[in-house]
Amino acid sequence: MNAFRLLADLTHLLSIIILLVKIRTTKSCAGISLKTQDLYVLVFISRYLDLFTRPLSLYNTPFKLVFLATSITIVYYMRYHKVVKQTYNKDSDTFKHYFLILPCAVLAFFINPKFTFIEVLWSFSIYLEAVAILPQLVLLQSSSNIDNLTGNYVFMLGAYRALYLLNWIYRFFAEDVVRWIPWIAGLVQTALYADFFYYYIKSWRNNERLKLP
């Protein structure tokens, strides 16, 4: 465990809390992509299957349970809550996210640490997480005004994986740990946020509303 890793996980947790606060307090999920949330549920389920097979960890296990519970709760709210589901931008959330699942599954089938059920699904979840934000970024581009909580949510979500990259750099030098699969997927994932980061920081610096081209 190192500071980058701890900060990364807390940032990830914070992003989910921001989203839950937004949905619960404003009773609205306007600007949030349900497709991205669906993908995150898939990411967490396929990644945390080892909850039942590997020894529990005081640190990881609570986080895994919280990530699973919150991501499922968010999808539940957006699909079934009578008030919230009315505010979902169904006609703007148009990304064909099913086209993301198959390539990740095929890639995981061929590129994985070990050809076992758990490891292939773990690799699938790593690849899927890298692209899961795409529907959300596409939805933001079509949103006329992005509310602060949504902007902060996406920013934290991107920042957490960037912090994981620092954690991997640290572990490479300090513990000689090499992990190609999460490294490359994490780089792709963070790169996808690059333009969002640029506009987010620009709007924060000029103290104006966030607007994506």
Binding site: R5, D9, H12, D50, R54, S57, N60, F63, K64, F67, I111, N112, P113, K114, E119, W122, Y164, N167, V178, R179, W180, I181, P182
Partner: peptide
């Protein structure tokens, strides 16, 4: 192709 790595990260 990677060796079996412990899943100690989230």
């Amino acid at each position: 192709d990677c060796y079996d790595q412990p899943k100690d990260e989230l």
